[in-house]
Design a binder for these strands. Structure first.
Length: 305
DNA sequence: CTCCAGGCGCCTT
DNA sequence: AAGGCGCATGGA
């Protein structure tokens, strides 16, 4: 027998997604910040469970380090059962979105934990993705709980729950290098301790009302609220506008003028409708990663400065 | 060295 | 309503 015996998973499964699905395009798209690739396997923690994911001809191969019988937690996160055919059919009418979709046909929107998503994006403001990852790793290995990984993989931690963050001091959070974002994260966590606050219940509200509830939290403006609604609460019509999306929208649709953020928001929601979230993901990832040079002109950058 | 990064909140007009 | 600026931190 080979030495691999000691690293056999406690449970494994092959998931066959509805439609195209790329782990690389999805897990490196700036929706999540705590997934890392080791050899061919993407490793992460979902709901306290360590999991590795590998693309194979048979589907997505998932391995866990502890026994698992029900894989719903994983299919919910990956949204592998979501039929994206109708969304593709609608969005490909737009030449820009079509171009982006053709470049990344397997890019998908995940459904992550609302608190981890909210906290991550509070920390994200005016930071590069690499730095966001560093801050969150530091936060988790300091205040999260260790999670058992398969042998040969790096150690992992859970994301600290609301009550843990709420119980810290601002100075402790600043130790995690988040700077002026520390009081925002702390005060938001403390507000969420109120039993009247339930992030999951925002799902039942109309988009505009859910957005207003979120922006009432310190450190949460329109952009971060839209990210939380889209990436964790199932609001697929949500369209987060950051500097990259603003540049992309102007480059594609308003080459001769610079509409306000409010105007851009209304334009995107009107043009892309119930699929605006996917349109945003395609535009963001396409222009930021695949075609960054197209937005490098002063005219495109001017709007956001 | 300077500039800037998946913004937000607050202060001016 | 719209625009300017400070805020920590670290990489380019």
């Amino acid at each position: 027998m080979s030495a691999a015996t000691c690293s056999e998973p406690a449970a494994q499964v092959y998931l066959v997604p509805q439609g195209r699905y790329s782990l690389d395009e999805t897990l490196a798209s700036g929706q999540v910040f705590r997934w890392s690739k080791h050899k061919d396997a993407w490793c992460g923690v979902i709901g306290g469970r360590w999991v590795s994911l590998t693309s194979t001809p048979q589907g997505i191969h998932a391995q866990t380090s502890v026994p698992v019988t029900d894989w719903r937690w994983l299919t919910d996160f990956l949204q592998t059962d979501l039929d994206i055919a109708a969304m593709h059919a609608v969005l490909e009418d737009d030449p820009w979105i079509r171009q982006a979709m053709d470049a990344m046909p397997g890019l998908r929107i995940l459904q992550q934990d609302p608190w981890e998503c909210l906290a991550s994006f509070i920390v994200s403001s005016t930071k590069q993705v690499v730095q966001i990852q560093q801050i969150l790793d530091l936060l988790c290995c300091t205040h999260g709980k260790p999670v058992k990984a398969l042998p040969g993989y790096p150690p992992s931690w859970t994301f600290p729950p609301i009550k843990v963050i709420a119980g810290l001091s601002e100075a402790e959070l600043r130790t995690c290098k988040m700077g002026f974002r520390a009081p925002y994260l702390l005060e938001t966590a403390r507000k969420l301790l109120d039993p009247a606050w339930n992030l999951d219940k925002l799902r039942q509200l109309p988009l505009a009302e859910a957005r207003q509830r979120l922006t009432a939290l310190p450190g949460v403006g329109d952009k971060i609220a839209h990210c939380v609604l889209l990436f964790s609460l199932g609001f697929y019509e949500s369209f987060p506008i950051d500097v990259w999306i603003a540049r992309a929208l102007r480059h594609c649709y308003f080459p001769r003028r610079a509409p306000s953020m409010k105007r851009l928001q209304a334009f995107a929601e009107e043009r892309f409708g119930i699929h605006a979230g996917y349109a945003q993901q395609y535009l963001y990832h396409y222009f930021r990663v695949k075609n960054r040079a197209a937005l490098a002109s002063p005219a495109d950058r001017a709007q956001t400065r």
